[in-house]
Amino acid sequence: MTDDSPVDRPVALVTGAGGGLGSAIVTRLASAGWQVAPSSHGHGSLSADLAVPTQARSLVARVIEQYGRLDLVVANHAAMAMATVDEHPVDDWWRIVDTNLSGSFHLAQAGATHLRRTHGSIIFVSSEWGVTGWPKASAYASSKAGLIGLTRALAKELAPDIRVNAIAPGIIDTEQLRVDAGAQGISLAEMKAHYAAVAPLQRIATREEISASVAFLASPDAAFYTGQVLHPNGGTTLGS
């Protein structure tokens, strides 16, 4: 891909690009030769609140306007908050689902027309918690589980033009982990040790390990993958 002139290089829209994993995905895809269109809520010309369907459509339109084509959508943005099911304020619970699941759907819907033209692909960033469920994370885990169903549905519906896959990563070493530790009143080191203890590989993931899974699914090496979920999680879903 790197031999092509900039105007012909494939374009990847990455949402949640300002976050820990998002910035690693941007770097990794750029080094693999992609032109990356990074979207981050509240920052820059590709800012979008993806809980709002019209903003998902406007984001895709702005990418087409600025880059002229679309070959890959990486739906990586996410909202997160933890509470028990009966104590989680109902509006906040739905804001998480509307951002993570509905936002990804509206992004895929808006991108599909352009991706059909380029025979592109979609990658949804789900989560280990979407596979296993997680206490006090019912909104987040529901939204991430929904993305796995959406992956299977759209993979069937959009084949053979567009490939649709997902990753369901385990715990990643990002700034979010510090925030989560603070919310639970423990140190970052304790937080990491807690998650490492339940993974057969005895550690949490680096951002680079997870972005590598995204880059693989986006690459020609994964041309026969659709409807699949990669689980880079250190073995946690094998059980502790």
């Binding site: 689902v97 994370a137 019912s138 885990a141 529901s142 589980a145």
Partner: peptide, 11 residues
């Protein structure tokens, strides 16, 4: 329906 499965597993 897939999201509902994630909800059940969490709960």
């Amino acid at each position: 329906k897939s999201a509902l499965i994630g909800l059940a597993r969490s709960l």
